[in-house]
């Protein structure tokens, strides 16, 4: 069925109560199940490549969120598993994120190259 690019555009959506990003989690689960998947981060999701994300444990009354996910670690694991991780450089720059802040292995993509980039994939899933 061909290669899949997961374009993840929305960040930090219910990520504390889930202790995961559900789009990212699903991508990794599908990859583990044999799907040929890469990731392109756009919009505010480009912040997921920032190395210093540090969500603390939260205690809410008698409840707790003890292990909020560190997305830089999830993405590094994705790269180690053979997946390719891209981010839209324009969206990164608009948010004032500097290249020195980001994790190793994430590859920059310029918006002007997006059409030709997407055309290398048979399936485009927008999250």
């Amino acid at each position: 069925m061909g290669k899949i690019i997961n374009v993840i555009d929305t960040a930090y959506r219910a990520t504390l109560e889930e202790q995961d990003d559900t789009s990212l989690w699903f991508t990794r689960a599908c990859k583990n199940a044999g799907a040929d998947m890469d990731i392109l981060l756009t919009g505010n999701a480009v912040n997921y490549v920032v190395r210093n994300q540090n969500p603390h444990a939260l205690y809410l009354g008698k409840g707790a969120i003890p292990h909020p996910s560190k997305f830089q670690d999830d993405l590094s694991d994705f790269i180690k598993s053979g997946g390719r991780l891209y981010f839209l450089n324009n969206d990164l720059e608009e948010r004032g994120i500097e290249s020195k802040e980001i994790i190793e292995g994430a590859q920059a993509l310029d918006r002007t190259k997006m059409a030709s980039f997407l055309d290398t994939y048979e399936n485009i899933w927008h999250w």
Binding site: D9, T42, G43, R111, M114, D119
Partner: peptide, 18 residues
């Protein structure tokens, strides 16, 4: 802005002949 970005992407795909 994401919607306008999508329009731009569609134009780029069209310009590439798709």
């Amino acid at each position: 802005n994401d919607v306008r970005d999508c329009y731009h992407l569609i134009k780029d795909l069209s310009d590439s002949g798709h």
